[in-house]
Structures are given as structure tokens and as C-alpha cells.
Amino acid sequence: MKKDLLGIADLTPEEIYLVLETAEAMREIGQRPIKKVPTLRGKTVVNLFYEPSTRTRTSFEIAEKRLSADTLNVAVAASSVLKGETLADTARNIEAMSPDMIVLRHSSSGACHLLSRICKSRIINAGDGMHEHPTQALLDAFTIKEHKPRFEGLKVAIVGDLAHSRVLRSNALLLTKLHADVWVSGPPTLLPPGIERLGVHVTTSVDEAVQDADVIMMLRIQQERMQGAFFPSLREYFNVFGMTAERVSRAKPDVIIMHPGPMNRGVEIASDVADGPYSVILEQVANGVAVRMAVLYLLAGGVEDEAAA
């Protein structure tokens, strides 16, 4: 693998499968009575979070601890930014303390690319603006793989706020690389122009997208990233795009329903669907730890390879 994990765009299908296979082994560690291995002993990992995050930050931290890394959480939103320090300066300061890896979450697309150009440490993108969220797409793929025999030809419907979603971009890239049949659906006001060039089918009809789908992936309505009116009301959004049991019934009988969280119940997904028998939402969260362990392990392994060479 490359020095950094900035996005799914940089991964080959072989590397994606390598992460998924490694995650299988990592999951077993989490099932032991003593959930810790010495793999990353002596390595320092900084979790640099410029956006509030509970799930992703916790998941990374548990993954790092299970691999015995020394971890450090820096929530920058409240500290340096207010004092006017730039990301470049913060990065140089952290770099001066020689961490091995930096996990970055940032509200600006491409922030991890800037960090990558400054730092020798390995950078893992934990979500950059509206661009990518590669570990989310990897854990989604891992979850799909547990339920479906293969990715080729699998109909995956991704529904919701496509414009502002980094989860969409990473998943569309990953699933098309593995030759799944990806359908995306949302209001026309939330369709990013040119998105079909990612190799996905685009439709404003949710019913068409979920028809005979193997996987339904819901995207959060990100009210915090929306300026201006993209649709009339949350009520109308739910009526037209919300995932209801009636809509789910159009999909294959063994469909699985996914959501990257946090969910807006009654906006993009009905509660009975979120908590229903097709939902694998909590499995996604569980798998997140194993997948992030795999990513940390593979990137750190690269360090040793270079030292040996």
C-alpha cells in the first residue's frame, strides 16, 4: 500500500481485498478475552479531529489500543483553530513530535492531502469534507462481504444527500472498482453534477434504485452542510426519499440495509426499518474496529518493509 490512505481512489482492487482479508483476522482479536496484540507496540498514533465525531474517533481509538499503539486524541475544533493556527502549522508541530501515524478528520475536502505533503508520518483520512471517508467504505464492503457471496453484479442502491456525502464518494469508488452495480438516488438538488462519470446509475426515483437491490445504503441528511433550501421540508423529504418498509419490499428478499450513522430517524429512514430484520447498521459499527485495525496494521507494516529494504 501507499504511504497514506487518503482515499479509495488511490487503492487497487487487490489492495481493497487485502484490507478486507486482514480485517477478518483482526476481528478474531476482538473476540478474545484479552483483546490486545503487540503489533503496534512503540508506535504513536495521533487522532487529529477537526470535526466532532463519536463513532469514527472511538472506533479508531479502540482499533489503535487493540494493536497496542500509543494513542493521542487531539480535538482541534476547540483549541488551535480559535487561536488562529493554520492546519499547516498544527501539522508541523505534531510532526515535530515524530508520531508514526496521523488520523485526520477535517471539514475541508483535501485537508488530508495538505497534511500528506507536510508530514512524513503516515496519514489516514478519517473523513475530509465532502470528499472521501475511505475507512467507512472499507467497513461497508466488509459488512457486505459477510452477507453476500461476491461483489460482481451486486445491486447496491445508495440513497440520500449525494452532494454533501463523502460516504457516497468513497463507496461509489470502491463498489465500482469491485464491479458492483451501483445505483444512486436523491433529490435533483442534491445530485453532484457529473457523478455518473464514477460509473454509477443515477435516478431520482428511489423505487427504481431499490428495485431488486441486494444492498440499500442510506445517507444521512447533513443539515450542517446545507446552505439554502435543497428540498421543501424534512416531512416532504421523508415522503419522497425516506426508506420505509413499503419501499424495502421492492428489494430482494435477502436485502441488507446499511447506514453510516448518525441516523435521522423519520427523515431518511423509518425507525422500523432501521431496527428491523434487514438492518446491519450495528454490524457496520462492530466491523469498523476490525477494518481500522487492518488499515493501521497494513500501513505500519509498510514502515517496517521500508526499514528492511
Binding site: 475536502s109 483535501g110 475530509d128 469534507g129 465532502m130 470528499h131 472521501e132 463523502r166 464518494r169 453532484p192 453534477p193 457529473g194 457523478i195 462519470r197 464514477l198
Partner: peptide, 11 residues
Amino acid sequence: EGYQASSLGLR
């Protein structure tokens, strides 16, 4: 506004 901005997540 176009494919490049969409793919890079830029407004």
C-alpha cells in the same frame, strides 16, 4: 461546478 468539483467534494 462539474465532474472535477463533484469528485473532489468541492462546492
